[in-house]
Design a protein around this nucleic acid. Sequence first.
RNA 1: UGGGCUAUGGUGUAAUGGUAACACUGCAGAUUCUGGUCCUGCCUUUCCUGGUUCGAGUCCGGGUAGCCCAACCA
Length: 592
Amino acid sequence: MATSDTTTTEKKSLNFIEQIVVKDLEEGKNGGRLQTRFPPEPNGYLHIGHAKAIAIDFGIAKQFGGVCNLRMDDTNPQKEDTEYVEAIERDIKWLGFEWGKICYASDYFQDLWDFAEWCILQGRAYVDEQTSEEIAKQKGTPTEAGTNSPYRDRPAEESLRLFREMNSGNVEPGKMILRAKIDMASPNMHFRDPIMYRVLNLPHWRTGTKWNAYPMYDFTHGQSDYLEGVTHSICTLEFVPHHELYDLFVTWIKEWKGETAENGQDIEDNRPRQFEFNKLNLNYTLMSKRNLLILTKEGVVDGWDDPRMPTLCGIRRRGYSPEAILGFIGKIGYTNFDALNDIKLMEAACREDLNKRAIRVSAVVDPVKLVLDNYPENLVEEMVAIDNPELKDEEGNIITEGNTHVIKFSRELYIERDDFMEDGGKKFLRLGPGKEVRLKNGYIIKCDEDPGKCIEKDSEGRITCIHATYDPETRSGLPSADRKIKGKTLHWVSCKHSLPCEVRDYSCLWTCENPRDAIKQYEKENGVRGIDAMRPFLNPDSLRINKGAYIEEYAATLPTLSYLQFQRIGYYNIDTDSTPQHLVFNKTVGMK
RNA sequence: UGGGCUAUGGUGUAAUGGUAACACUGCAGAUUCUGGUCCUGCCUUUCCUGGUUCGAGUCCGGGUAGCCCAACCA
């Protein structure tokens, strides 16, 4: 689809990471190569926050002629599962990105192990046999230096023997760890002899039972980047404190590989560098995987792909397109500021996209019957409805070719209950006694001045039927049709030619702007955890199911996940639960 | 209270020592066979305080506020 964006000279400034990449490329760092990676841990579903990381990891490679690998950060078999691996691949593809290759941190387990042994022999690592409590105590606090482990200076040969023991399966988890010998007094807590390896004695979904001891994140990430040839390792701000350690381990592994200044090599070149950006925070949204897992387990939501979830599969089912998500990500930018983004910005990006994309249909979600008293009893007319009025030619005229469908018109129709008011006043431009409106793609109709003649009510005073007359001269498309009237244009469906359907309207899952902080505080104050700390902030009204709606027949011919606009109401998507016999629609976002 | 990072309208982002701007939100108007879109206009901004400079949102000092770090998670 041709958009005006490409023609206007849009001077979009580069974000700080793009500027770094441009500069590095100009200076010929890493031999002028650009390589990134997207490194999810396969322990949950990807969410909108990951989309931000994906957009820069894959996007920057695409933009500047580099390559981005997908790397599963699978160093903890305790939490990981192939179910998640498949979902991650699916979601990235859906967003429209391609990886150079798919890798796994576990690809490097042997290298990492050999490197660790080298570290031991170099006197830079030792096996510690204290309990985790003892080690935690010795670590000190941010304001107090830590103290050395009694095992810190044990002979390298002994550490090496014990390290190999750690992988035998005969060492109980928690009994031994391998630590880097750095500085127990460092102001950076990550330098206080960080753990390199721990015993898990668990099989790994890729490496089977080969390993019983597994490397920690800090001892894996930079090295994997290096071994893979990553030049720019982009991650979120919470990893800033790890940055120095990342650099240190990269320097060490280069040394292990013989890349040292003594060997005449530039150790500042040919190395991955870490860059950090602010992760995505959205108000009224909870992002953390841990908490999303609780919501699914407790049945608060329907599953990971519940349309209220911030997961990519949830957002997809809600009716967002990949372009809408990426458009939103493009608007919020990458900085070092810990921002809390307004969900309205995401909705605006969604409307912008869906306005160009969605097929317009007529659906009446709160129906009331409208009878056109002067319309022939058995007449059925086929009216022409435009699928997408935003599809235009160069002159700005709506393209009709292949862009229309038929909607049937008859004497008895449904219109929205709130499109009629007995005493709406001057500013109410819809239907009422004495008022004239146009029925979209149909006729101009008018109600009698006398409420008694145009309104039928039940015993409780609720309107059951509205009567009006139509003006045959004003059928849409007729030369005489364009008579100016004061009233608005209403949507409608024919009673006999529409289908009952289920419409699911959603609003935010949370009642407070920052559920993460609210939950954390509630946990602290009330001594409860998990779902009990979440309940007070859950919106009881986040899902409204309406089974009394009607939609034009055309909608039943459209495939699942089609992007629709219920005219004058909002954007809707055909749910994955929907069948031609039982149509189900999800509200993506309302009209503005 | 040790270390690190951050602070620009209501929200997010730009301005890379030289006229503070863009998007969203909100409000008003015009157009409209969607009270949508498109269009026009309006509202509102450099945390405080010293300094450097002809000139500071930008650089420096001192405050203040927020975030991250003391998992055998990533």
